[in-house]
């Protein structure tokens, strides 16, 4: 059993072994058959995907045919102060809200996974914000909770604190959005819970017999065996956080205000494309974001070799 624990603490990249050619062909065929729907689906994805790449090098106002302008859009991006502001907002939001919400989600999932009485109820309740998140009604509610005369400030008023306009003050608006994001920790939590339940109980039983402490169990069983799921949540949160749109859009009525403090990259891209009809510029922005996200994802995949453990 200690040997098993030993093994689990060491991360191991999968190393495909070279096999003889005929068997490889048959194996290849099985893989392609499983991916068949995906290949067909890629046609739907790839056509618009590369269409937007072409548009990134054009002047395209949606109504007239696109006109090739080379790298002009990218040059313009270098000198665009709003683009810089939107990057600042997006990076700040990502680097705070992703670790924060993942930490909360993992913590709560661990507590719930202890096998607590009423688990089903807690899980459903904690997941509620994620269920409701997309509803128009909830957006309207935020205004009345975080408004200058909203419920939060009423509560603070009982303690003699005069609260700011949580969404209307540029110093607080982004923090409010980060808070709201952490509030919807239910989605990663559900995935963590599912992952935790995949860990065979016998590992814990065996290590308990060996006299391992809770912390040791967490370090040498939970963390390595959950690492593929942690990795998934991290990558997924990073990608979606860099693309944050709805939060900024609904809280600022599409403006990215107050004073551009919630002007997310994707929101600015949308304004350029659909409000100002600069779709060529918006496409260039989109591909720049793709490069940024891909770079972060690649770094994570490289780093994953050292901490993500896959069963052999």
């Amino acid at each position: 059993m200690t040997a098993l624990l030993e093994r689990t603490t060491r991360a191991r990249p999968a190393a495909p072994a070279r096999k003889p050619a005929p068997r490889k062909r048959r194996r290849d065929r099985a893989g392609y058959v499983f991916l068949l729907p995906w290949f067909v689906g890629m046609l739907f994805t790839i056509v618009p995907f590369f269409a937007s790449l072409y548009l990134a090098f054009t002047d395209y106002n949606l109504l007239n045919a696109p006109r090739w302008i080379g790298f002009a859009n990218f040059r313009e991006m270098l000198a665009d102060p709003l683009l810089r502001q939107s990057m600042k907002v997006t990076f700040l939001y990502t680097f705070i809200s992703v670790p924060a919400s993942l930490a909360v989600a993992l913590l709560v999932a661990m507590v719930l996974n202890k096998g607590i009485r009423g688990l089903a109820v807690y899980r459903a309740v904690f997941y509620l914000p994620s269920l409701l998140g997309g509803s128009v009604a909830i957006v309207i509610l935020w205004r009345h909770i975080f408004g200058a005369n909203g419920i939060v400030n009423d509560l603070l008023g009982w303690f003699g604190i005069h609260g700011p306009g949580w969404t209307s003050d540029p110093d607080f608006s982004l923090s409010t959005l980060i808070l709201l994001h952490v509030w919807t920790f239910g989605s990663p939590m559900v995935i963590f819970l599912a992952g935790l339940r995949q860990i065979p109980v016998m590992y814990y039983e065996a290590s308990a017999i060996d006299g391992a402490s809770k912390w040791q169990q967490f370090r040498s069983i939970t963390l390595p065996l959950l690492s593929p799921i942690i990795f998934f949540n991290l990558i997924q949160s990073l990608i979606s956080s860099f693309q944050t749109f709805t939060q900024g859009f609904v809280m600022s009525g599409g403006t990215g205000g107050p004073a551009d403090s919630t002007l997310f990259y994707n929101l600015y891209l949308y304004q350029q494309g659909f409000s100002q009809f600069h779709m060529g510029y918006a496409s260039a922005m989109a591909w720049m974001l793709l490069v940024i996200i891909a770079a972060f994802t690649a770094i994570n995949f490289l780093a994953a070799k050292y901490w993500v453990f896959y069963e052999q």
């Binding site: 700011p164 403006t255 107050p258």
Partner: peptide
């Protein structure tokens, strides 16, 4: 004071006029 108007929602029923402020 600053921050009184939320930059969201301009419907009549949510207006400060309707709330009497």
């Amino acid at each position: 004071p600053a921050g009184f108007f939320d930059n969201i929602g301009s419907s009549s029923s949510e207006s400060p006029l309707a709330k009497g402020t």
